[in-house]
């Protein structure tokens, strides 16, 4: 189901995220890859699950194969598609393939640079940027490819995009967000945000944009992870207060603490957004707790 239908109904849309495994899916149907198991934990609490595309430029199982795998298991996937590894022919072909295999939602992104990943000598593609990709996907919906040739049975998928509220200067990031809207983006998920002021400035500047936005949150598991993200994860900054708070409890209690902190943050801001995108980084089992702390009815998602 297209998640844009949920936004249209005025539902608060909750999505999760899993990363495909580094490896192939077993031919033994009784063996499920870990990403499918994570998605299972999530499925009763979210509307859909993002499937990342060679996230952080680390080579993995394809996002489309993993998305189809989730769909077959009854979980609604959001197929992430990046410009890093595919030229315009491959991007369009993958969009047609995705729709043909039953995918209803795609998230169209630039992609992390190859230098951030595990294949640093690979040739970066970036034939299109994300704005051009969205426009091309919209064109496929309208029945033609990027060169103007007609296509048979145009695909009809919800077209999502991303925006980073942490970006400085924010106006430059919003200029690109506007271009994504003009190109055909139907909903947005934000990069992980931890800072209340960042949220408020972003909301103030985008509330008239007229597209549903999901607040992105990443589980902060430990103070070390906060420091690591500040050092290594592009476009995310974790304030000192978060790092101190998660560090204030013993390791054994951190999962509970992380869920509480994240829940409190979502509770403070949920009314300003049309949904939340939770990136639990493997701690999928505490997502119900996060939602409880956030005061979001779990049943709402199903």
């Amino acid at each position: 189901m297209k998640i844009t239908k949920l936004f249209q109904r005025g539902e608060f849309v909750i999505t999760g995220e899993v990363g495909p495994i580094k490896g192939a899916v077993s031919r033994d149907w009784r063996v499920s890859p870990s990403c499918a198991q994570e998605a299972w934990h999530l499925q009763d609490f979210v509307h859909a699950v993002n499937v990342t595309d060679n996230q952080s430029a680390v080579m993995r199982l394809g996002s489309l194969a993993a998305s189809v795998g989730l769909k077959q298991r009854g979980i609604e996937p959001i197929f992430q598609l990046t410009c890093r590894d595919r030229n315009r022919i491959a991007l369009q072909s993958d969009l047609l393939t995705a729709y043909s295999l039953g995918i209803d939602n795609v998230l169209l992104l630039t992609g992390d640079h190859i230098q951030l990943g595990d294949h640093k000598s690979a040739k970066p593609v970036f034939d299109l940027d994300s704005v051009q990709l969205i426009r091309m996907a919209k064109g496929l919906q309208a029945g033609h490819d990027i060169t103007g040739h007609d296509i048979e049975n145009p695909p009809d998928m919800a077209l999502g995009a991303v925006v980073n509220p942490n970006f400085e200067p924010l106006d430059l990031q919003l200029l690109k967000m506007r271009k994504k809207i003009d190109a055909g983006a139907e909903f947005f998920q934000t990069q992980a945000v931890y800072d209340d002021r960042v949220v408020d400035e972003f909301v103030a500047k985008t509330e008239k944009f007229g597209r549903p936005i999901q607040l992105g949150v990443v589980m902060l598991k430990s103070p070390q992870m906060g420091a690591f993200m500040n050092r290594n994860v592009s476009g995310i900054s974790v304030p000192r207060a978060w790092i101190d708070e998660i560090g204030s409890v013993d390791k054994a209690d951190r999962k509970k603490k992380a869920a509480e902190m994240m829940g409190r943050f979502i509770a403070r801001h949920k009314d300003k957004f049309q949904g939340v995108h939770i990136m639990p980084l493997g701690w999928t089992d505490v997502v119900p707790e996060i939602l409880e702390h956030a005061g979001i009815s779990v049943a709402a998602a199903r």
Partner: peptide, 11 residues
């Protein structure tokens, strides 16, 4: 990334 329509979110 040779982007033509503005920055990615990575900076």
């Amino acid at each position: 990334k040779q982007l033509l329509n503005g920055p990615c979110g990575g900076a």
